[in-house]
């Protein structure tokens, strides 16, 4: 962002123009009514000012039609504001399929991010333009909030669960990243930059520096290190269900419920395994609460997501 004085923030994502159009629509409609009220007050206050102490005003009728109109018309306009806003919100909540995932862990007072390729960043996120990016976020301590004004997106980042936020950047540049949920002493310093790059530059940036493991590789290493493999056999013959094709499948639980195996479900199964038991299995898994870092859990999830199994995927549907 260039310094200087401006009345509107930069637009650098696909959703930003939509938000701004609605914002200007709201400004126009509400501005019209506000100015109407101000004008009426001004005109009445002057035209009907008290001219003598014993003045008696003339009787005024109160037409029902007027009351109905100023209940009905604003409410009709409000329905438009609601619908338009809800339409944008729906898009905020639903990332396009195949969005590129980046994992975010917030803590007092910094952001730690990791790309699937393994590249780690602190208080900075490099992304290419034109590619939908989905952030899977959690916090190590208190509630934070990932806010990129230039993209018009914002989402609280909670301890103990994942929240998501997605965007598609449209313009190369450096944009503010703010923590928008008050999180303690250095809340105002918990920010950084989103660096939006042309895809080719992004590839160059990604391949630069130390390579390291990808998230998936790190996850596989942890999966073995924590001996998950001793129960979760790949061929479903172990004491615990196979994790092949688990991600996004429908899992039947003891008691007949069905849940979708998303990030929050996998996370819960690692930290509180007895919360949801898969039908046909016993509650034998120990908890890994306090043993794996937030980053480690995200890596294991990345690994489990990579375990594709065509037949089970189709069976699950």
């Amino acid at each position: 962002m260039q310094p200087g004085f401006s009345l509107s923030p930069e637009q650098a994502s696909t959703i930003a123009p939509h938000v701004d159009h609605l914002f200007y629509f709201l400004t126009g409609v509400t501005g019209f009514f506000a100015i109407l009220v101000f004008m009426l007050i001004f005109v009445f206050a002057i035209k009907y000012r008290r001219r003598s102490e014993d003045e008696i005003p003339v009787k005024v009728h109160e037409p029902m039609a007027l009351e109905t109109a100023w209940i009905g018309i604003p409410f009709g306009l409000m329905l438009i504001m609601f619908g338009w806003g809800a339409w944008i919100y729906y898009q905020d909540y639903n990332p396009p399929a195949g969005a590129f995932e980046v994992f975010v862990v917030g803590k007092q007072w910094m952001w730690k991010l990791q790309h699937p390729e393994g590249k780690r960043e602190i208080n900075e996120l490099h992304v290419p333009i034109g590619v939908p990016i989905k952030l899977v976020m959690t916090s190590q301590d208190v509630i934070h909030d990932f806010f990129i004004p230039a993209f018009r997106v914002k989402q609280d980042v909670l301890p103990g669960r994942y929240t998501e936020l997605w965007f598609k950047a449209t313009k190369p540049g450096r944009y503010h990243l703010f923590c928008a949920q008050y999180c303690g002493t250095d809340h105002a310093h918990m920010g950084g930059w989103i660096v939006v790059m042309e895809p080719r530059e992004y590839q160059r940036w990604l391949s630069g520096g130390e390579a390291g493991e990808t998230m998936e590789q790190a996850g596989r290493r942890l999966f073995q290190q924590y001996a998950c493999t001793s129960c979760h056999f790949e061929d479903n013959t172990g004491r615990c269900p196979s994790l092949r094709g688990l991600y996004h499948s429908q899992v039947k639980l003891v008691g007949g419920q069905t849940v979708t195996a998303d990030e929050n479900y996998i996370r819960e199964s690692i930290l509180d395994p007895n919360a949801k038991i898969v039908a046909g299995y016993s509650p034998v898994m120990p908890t890994f609460k306090g043993q794996i870092s937030e980053e480690g859990i995200l890596q294991i999830i990345a690994y489990i997501k990579s375990l594709k199994s065509p037949e089970r995927m189709s069976a699950g549907k």
């Binding site: 338009w84 909030d145 997106v153």
Partner: peptide
Amino acid sequence: IGLFTMGGVTGMFLASLGVNVHVHD
């Protein structure tokens, strides 16, 4: 009346989900 109206109409912005996400907090 003037100031309350200003506060009231900007509530319309905040009640609108898409705009709220941007100006929240």
